[in-house]
Design a protein around this nucleic acid. Structure first.
Lengths: 198, 198
DNA sequence: CGGCTTGCTGAGCAACGGTCAGCACGCTAC
DNA sequence: GTAGCGTGCTGACCGTTGCTCAGCAAGCCG
């Protein structure tokens, strides 16, 4: 009686492996709280030994950082307007895309926000970075100051906090739509407009 | 040569111990990311064995839940207006208290928000609960609907999201005060007022 | 003193993160 | 074709951490 043919352990290129491992992390993150996701599990799903994972990512933190960054990059590119969108429409376009993203991914996105904001400082850092990038993106679309520029700091803080407002409201809206989608979008743009009108 | 007199392990009542252990957790939480806080460390500081801690809290999660809830309760009582405050002043009073709280505890509060919102669902639950209670508190002060009542759901969502806005803005303001304290308070009340005027 | 309650401990287990020496696969050189 | 070599990859091992359990010991009653 021969062994039940262990899965053919293919030999991959380094880049391939990294991609595969990060991909598995992206699949697992939404369903598994960060700290319950074990290296064992990831390695098992990838059909490799734990040791190999440590070969590519020196520590668990590094692995999570990579996964979080990958998730953040997905969101960022999704929110970046293509050249076709006229400058005036960009804020509305981005907002619409953001709502669409949350609608589509619901738990996934919430898990990202939660996982990123919570516990581990190294991962929180990636999240913070992403948030700043999104604020830059948004402020660029609004035509306010250059990214990382010397514009009014209060104004920047307001945009950032408006983002927190939006994040929270959209999440609530997805769970319990208390208004139409159009009204939600209108409300959000209106609030932002008023904030910047000061 | 006698052993260096191990600290006299006093025998405490169950309530005392619980309180002591939660107290240690409250001290440690701000400086230590949730998942790096080990039971060993807590037990060591309390001068007891790990086993005893597991006697009072069936698991690490339960312990963290208790600590988080204690932190949340502190905030809640701090934000609850005493009888002396007239109804009309309560919203402003609470807002002022909230800013004061963040000013005083800075990292501590941030760590609470982070730790609570992050990772572990059981702890996030406590945070969610607290947030709802704070919204109730705020809406009560504003004279909008009874707590847990059947008021306009959109309105409630707006108050909640405004809270997220406030949380974020105050945190930014504490790190980098881009305006005076009075202006910050005025801005926040103004934003809330406009949101509710719809 | 004996017996009861209950605060408390130490030894021990399983699971996890992380390390290390070395195997094996696939390539080129002769 | 086979010797050599870079490198993808593994198994065995270690320390720590969450958690269990049988039982000690301190107080309090009769």
């Amino acid at each position: 009686m021969t062994a039940p043919a262990p899965p053919p352990r293919s030999r991959r290129s380094a880049a391939d492996r990294r991609e595969q491992l990060v991909g598995i992390g992206l699949q697992l993150l939404p369903t598994t709280p960060v700290q319950e996701l074990t290296i064992d599990e990831v390695a098992r799903r990838a059909g490799i030994s734990r040791s190999l994972l440590f070969h590519y990512f020196p520590s668990k933190r590094d692995y999570y950082r990579a996964v979080t960054r990958a998730a953040a990059d997905l969101l960022r590119t999704h929110l970046t307007p293509p050249d076709g969108v006229p400058a005036a429409d960009r804020p509305a376009w981005m907002l619409d895309r953001y709502v669409g993203w949350v609608e589509t991914y619901r738990e996934t996105h919430l898990a990202f926000v939660r996982g990123a904001a919570g516990g581990d400082p190294w991962v929180a850092e990636v999240y913070e970075e992403t948030r700043e990038a999104l604020v830059d993106l948004g402020m660029g679309a609004l035509g306010i100051g250059a990214p990382g520029g010397l514009e009014d700091p209060l104004r920047r803080q307001l945009v950032r906090s408006w983002f927190a407002f939006t994040e929270d409201l959209v999440h609530q809206w997805v769970r319990e739509p208390a208004t139409s989608r159009e009204d939600l979008l209108a409300l959000l743009t209106d609030v932002l407009g008023r904030l910047l009108d000061r």
